[in-house]
């Protein structure tokens, strides 16, 4: 089933400006994990805003759960989507960490008696349980990103859109969040994730990669296919994910590693354990 479908979407911020999203079409299946990569200014954040209905396309149609997104049903359909924005400072609404996580819950009219547990639970899962009463001005960028992620997840979205949501986290923080998302997926296999990222390693983990270039879909496919194509990567000035780079270099030295899927299998070829 298609969770999100974009049909020929075009968008410009004002009438006389050039379009920043041009004829974009793609489908995202329920339960899949799709990455969107592309240069700065290629229209990734704009696309996220279009999907959640904060912007209306000039042209084209957006379907969420096969329902056409219109100004009438936007509030209803939006409830299915959690969006973590790029700038952690400008999405921190509450006075403190706990108030910020509560903000979404209040909007959903979650009873007060249930809120505390939800807040504690998600704060803990993003590692912010000791900061509940801290104000945003006393948090680092990465900590604010964690709070934003907790805020989005606490609403139990069916679709999670992450707009460079872990860009300010250290490697440990990134892998923590990745683990958290994997865990959420395990609990709810139908969770659909759309991740906007510059991190090729992260994109390599996803089911599908969409490459945006100047507002157009430049490539769409499995990460193995995208990242094995040096030409695409060079045109986007992206690096190869470590494993693809390794395979590429080993293949050039006549190792038979075509069928290997991960580091362990490559290691097995290089140093057979018998």
């Amino acid at each position: 089933m298609n969770k999100i479908e974009l049909k020929n979407i075009s968008f410009s911020y004002s009438k006389d400006e050039t379009e920043v999203v041009k004829h974009v079409s793609f489908k995202v299946h329920e339960g899949s994990y799709v990455s969107i990569i592309g240069h700065n200014g290629s229209g990734k954040s704009t696309l996220a805003r279009l999907i959640i209905g904060l912007l209306a396309p000039n042209d084209g149609e957006i379907y969420i759960d096969d329902e056409l997104l219109t100004s009438k049903n936007v509030r209803k359909l939006r409830q299915k989507i959690g969006l973590v924005f790029q700038n952690p400072d400008n999405q921190f609404i509450g006075a403190t960490v706990e108030d910020d996580i509560a903000f979404g819950l209040e909007n959903r009219r979650i009873p007060r008696k249930d809120m505390q547990d939800i807040i504690n639970n998600y704060a803990k899962r993003v590692g912010m349980e000791d900061f509940l009463t801290k104000e945003p001005s006393r948090l680092s960028g990465g900590q604010k990103q964690r709070v934003a992620i907790a805020g989005a997840l606490s609403l139990n979205p069916e679709i999670l859109i992450l707009d460079e949501a872990t860009s300010m986290l250290d490697p440990k923080g990134k892998s923590d969040i990745r683990e958290l998302i994997n865990e959420m997926k395990k609990n709810n296999p139908n969770l659909t994730i759309l991740s906007i990222t510059h991190d090729v390693e992260e994109a390599y983990d996803s089911d599908e990669v969409i490459v945006l270039n100047k507002g157009e879909v430049a490539f769409k496919g499995k990460p193995q296919d995208v990242f094995s194509n040096r030409k695409i990567l060079e045109s986007l000035s992206l690096e190869m994910p470590f494993i693809m780079d390794l395979k590429d270099k080993l293949a050039n030295q006549d190792f038979k590693i075509d069928k290997c899927q991960n580091i362990d299998e490559i290691a097995e070829v290089l140093w057979p354990s018998k």
Binding site: R78, I81, F85, F103, G104, E106, N107, R108
Partner: peptide, 14 residues
């Protein structure tokens, strides 16, 4: 808005 805020709607209070 993305987190469902609607000034006219009823909200619960934390």
């Amino acid at each position: 808005e993305a987190r469902g805020y609607d000034p006219r709607a009823k909200r619960t209070k934390y």
